[in-house]
Design a protein around this nucleic acid. Structure first.
Lengths: 213, 213, 213, 213
DNA sequence: AATGAATGAGGTTTCATTCAT
DNA sequence: CATGAATGAAACCTCATTCAT
C-alpha cells in the first residue's frame, strides 16, 4: 500500500515474531504460516514479504530469544560489579532453563532440514551468535582472572551445549525425572554446569573478579 | 521376500531401515516414504505395514544407531578387562562423533513436532534408551570405584548431552571451526568430555579399575 | 486343503453371502472384503476363490434376494388358487418394500462402475432375472385374463421399476415423508403400484382369475 | 483465472463440473479427482478447494443436470400457454431419457456409500430437488384442472421414479430389448409414463389446460 | 485349498510457497 | 504493498486384488 521505511518494516517483522512466539508457546509446535499470519492480522502472502520461509520465521524468533539472553549477559559483564558463577547460573536459569520456549524452539531449529533455511539467513544467525559469544566470552575473561584467552567463548559454548543436550534428552523431564536417581531437567542442568565450571574455572576456590584496570 | 514369521518380519523392518539409512547418509535429509520404499524395493503401502509414519521410520533408525553404541559399550563393560576414560572416549568417537549420521539424525528426531510420532513409539524409544543408560551406568560404576550409586547413569547422560549439544552448535564445524579459537566439533567434544570426566571421576588422579572380585 | 465338490463349494459361497448380508444389514454399506472374510471365518484371499471381486459378492447377494422374491411369487402363481393385486402387493411389501436390505443393496448394485463386474457375472444376473420375470409374467397372464401376451412381464418390470425408482427418491422417507403432502416411501409405492395396476389390468373392475383350463 | 469474487468462484466450480461431465460422458465412470483436475486445467489441490470429495463433485454435477430439467420445466409451466402430457413427455425425453449422462450419473449418485457424502451436501441436494419438485408440482396443478392439491408433486415424483427405475432395469437396453416382447428403455419409459398419466390425470379424455384467469 | 503379506492405485488432506490482482 | 486463490508435493490412508507359501 505504502512503502514502509526500515523502522515500520522492522516493526512488522517483530509483530509477526510476536504472533509466532505466542503460538509456539501455546502449542509447543511450529504453527503453520496461515495461523501465524492470522494471529498477526495479516494475510498469508504478506508474511512472505518479511520472511523467506516458515523456517526463517522461527529461526528469527529463536535468534530473538538468544539475543535477549546475550544482551542481558553482555550488559552485565560490561559493568565492573563482581560477577560469579551463581549469577551466571541464575541468568541461564531465568532466560534458558526455566523459559518454556527457549530450548524447545531451539530444538526445532536444530532439526530444520538441510536446505530449508537460506544460506544467508543461516549465516546471519551464525554471525550474530558468534559475535555475542565472543563479546560475552571476553567479558567472562575480564571477570574471571584464571580464564586464558579464548577460554571464555569455549566455556560459554560448552555450557550452552550442556543445556541444549540435556534438554534434548530430558525434555519431558521438566517436572518428572526420567531415570532412577536422575533429577529434573533443570536439576541436572544446574548440576552439570556446576561441575563443568568447577573444573574449568575452579570457581569454588580461586576465580575472582580481576582487579579493575 | 514374504515375511511369514516374526524373524522374517523383523528382517524386513531392518531392510527398510537400511534403505532409510542409506538415503539419510546421502542427502542428510529425511527422504519421503515413497523414496524409502523404492530404495528398499518395496511398495509404499508395504512400508506402512511396518511403520506408522515417516517419523517413526527415522526414530527407529536412530534407535538402531543408539542400540549399536550401547550394545558395544554394555558388552565391553560386562567384561572384567580394565576400562578407562580413553576407551570410553574412543567408543564415543567411533560410534557417535565420527559417525556421519548418528548425531545429524538424532538432531532431526529431537525436532520432530509434538504429535508427529505416536505415543507408543515415543515411549518405546524412551524405554529402550533408559534401559541401556541404566545398564551402562551400572557397568561404569563397577569399573570406576569412586562413582557413587546412580552417578554412572548421570555421567553418561551428561556426556551424551555434551556431544548432542555441541553437535547442534557446531554441526557445520566438523572441519572448520566457527569461533576464533574454537576447534572442530570433534575437538571440542573431546575436550569438554575430558573436562567433565576429569571433574566427576578425577580420572586423571584416582579413578582406577576396581580390583577384580 | 481338500478338493471341494460342487455342494461344498456352493455351501461356502452361501456362507460368504450370509456374512456379507449381515454386514450390509448392519451398516447399510458394502463392507470391505477383509471384514466379510473375517465375518465368514475365512482369510481375505479365500473369498477370492469364490468370487471374482467385491462387486460380484454383492451382486450375488442381491441376486439371492431377488431369487427369494421370485421363487415365492412364481410358486404362488403356479397354483390355481385365485391370485389378485392385493396378494401381489403383499408379496412385494413383504419381500421388497419392507425388507431393509433388498432395495438399498439393489441401489448399490445399480451404481457399480461400468467394468467393475465381469461380463459373465453381469450376464448371469441378467439371465436369471429375465428367466424369473418371464416365468412370473406368464404366471400373471394365466391369472389375469385381460393381460395380453407379453404384458405380464411388462407389468412386472414396470412395477419393479416403480419400487426401485421411488426408493431412490425417497430412501430416507421410510418413516418420514420428504415433500409436503407426500407419504412415506412405502405409502407412495403402494399408491403408485395401485394406480399403475388399476390402469393396466383394470383390477378394480374386471381382472379376474381365468377359468381353470 | 483467479477467482476473486463469488461469480468467478462459481464460474470455476462450473468449469470443474464441465470437466467432470465430459469425463463421465466419455467413460461412463466417475473419473478420479486427479483426472478431473487435469481436464479442468487445475491442480488437484485446487479442486479440493471447491469440492470436499469426488462424490460431491458428481453429486453437484447430477444436481446441475436436474436443475437444467426443472428450470426448463418450471419456466414452461409458468407461462399460460396450454401444457399437456405430450409436451411433458417430450421435455423428459430430451433432458432425461435421451440424455446420455442424466440417468447413468444419477444411478451412480444413488449408489454412493452412506457417509461418502457430507451431510450438508446431501441435504443441499435434497433441498434443491424438493423445492423444484414442489414448484413444478404446483405448476402442473395450475395447468391440469383435475389435479387435486398436492397431486402435482406426487405425479412428478412417481413419473421420475418410473424413469429412474426403468433405467436401472433396462440400462443396457437403450437399443436392444432384454426380455422377449419388451421394447427399448425409452419405449418402455414412454409407455409406462403414458399409462400412469392416463390413470392419474385422465389425460386422454378430460385433462385440459385451465382457462386463463 | 487356504492363507495373509504384499501390492499399488488413488482418495484425502495439509501446507509451504507463489503469483495475479 | 497486501492479498488470498492457486499450486503441487507429499504425507497419510484405505482397500481391492494378487501371489508366494
Amino acid at each position: 500500500m505504502r512503502a514502509l521505511d526500515g523502522d515500520e518494516k522492522e516493526a512488522k517483522r517483530q509483530a509477526i515474531l510476536d504472533a509466532a512466539d505466542a503460538l509456539f508457546a501455546k502449542h509447543q509446535n511450529l504453527a503453520n504460516v496461515a495461523d501465524v499470519a492470522k494471529a498477526a492480522g495479516l494475510a498469508k502472502g504478506t508474511v512472505y514479504l518479511y520472511f523467506q520461509s516458515k523456517e526463517e520465521i522461527y529461526l528469527a524468533l529463536h535468534l530473538r530469544h538468544v539475543e535477549q539472553f546475550f544482551t542481558r549477559l553482555i550488559g552485565r559483564l560490561e559493568s565492573d560489579q563482581p560477577f560469579g558463577f551463581d549469577e551466571m547460573q541464575s541468568l541461564a536459569q531465568e532466560h534458558i532453563l526455566d523459559a518454556t520456549t527457549y530450548l524447545p524452539l531451539g530444538a526445532c531449529c536444530i532439526g530444520f532440514a538441510a536446505g530449508a533455511v537460506a544460506k544467508e539467513a543461516s549465516a546471519h544467525f551464525q554471525a550474530r551468535l558468534t559475535a555475542w559469544l565472543e563479546a560475552a566470552g571476553q567479558g567472562l575473561e575480564r571477570h574471571f582472572q584464571k580464564l586464558p584467552r579464548g577460554e571464555g567463548v569455549r566455556l560459554l559454548q560448552h555450557s550452552y551445549a550442556i543445556m541444549v543436550g540435556l534438554h534434548s534428552l530430558l525434555r519431558e523431564a521438566r517436572s518428572v525425572p526420567k531415570c532412577e536417581g536422575m533429577g529434573t531437567f533443570q536439576d541436572e542442568a544446574r548440576l552439570a554446569l556446576t561441575r563443568y565450571w568447577t573444573h574449568v574455572a575452579r570457581i569454588d576456590e580461586s576465580v575472582k573478579p580481576r582487579a579493575k584496570k
